Amino acid sequence: MGQMNIATAIMVYLFLWWGLFFMFLPFGVRHEEKAEGGNDPGAPDRPLLWKKAGAASIGAGLLFLVWWYLLDTGLFSLVS
């Protein structure tokens, strides 16, 4: 893994995953036409969280591979 230890790799992946997940949250949001009693009218009808988590996982994996490639080839370094 070159200059990156396993803890750093996990943290980079998790950072990428959460960033992408929060960026995907607003996509595809539809609100209920008539909110039932006790429901927030601004709450999404179907938030599609599993799709968004899957997209974040794939995107974070691809970005992590780019990060790893840049470290492995020496185009980017974690040390100065």
Rank of each mutant, 00 (worst) to 15 (best):
Q3V: 11
G54P: 07
V12G: 04
A55N: 06
K34H: 08
F76Q: 01
L49A: 09
P44N: 01
W50N: 01
P47H: 09
M23S: 03
M11I: 15
L75A: 13
W18V: 12
S80N: 14
G59E: 15
G42M: 12
A53S: 13
H31Y: 14
G59Q: 15
M11S: 13
V29P: 12
F15K: 00
W50G: 01
R46C: 02
N5W: 04
G37M: 05
M4Q: 11
F21N: 01
I10E: 05
L65M: 15
A9T: 09
L48G: 05
E32G: 06
A7D: 02
W68N: 09
A9K: 08
K34I: 03
K34E: 06
S77A: 13
V66T: 10
H31R: 11
G61F: 15
I10W: 02
V12N: 06
Y13E: 07
L63I: 14
L16G: 13
G2S: 10
V12E: 08
L75K: 07
W17R: 01
R30S: 06
R30Y: 01
D45M: 12
Q3P: 14
L75V: 07
F27C: 00
T73Q: 12
A9G: 11
F24V: 03
P41M: 04
M23Q: 01
D72W: 14
S80F: 14
L14D: 01
P44D: 05
K34P: 00
A9W: 09
A43L: 05
A60N: 12
V29W: 10
K52L: 03
R46K: 07
V12D: 05
K51I: 04
L63K: 09
F27H: 01
P44Y: 02
L16H: 10
A35R: 02
S77R: 06
H31K: 11
L16A: 12
A9R: 09
G74W: 02
G38R: 10
P26I: 11
K51S: 06
K51V: 03
G37F: 09
W50Y: 05
G59T: 15
P41S: 04
N5F: 02
L75E: 15
M11F: 11
V79T: 11
D45A: 15
K52P: 08
I58F: 14
K52N: 05
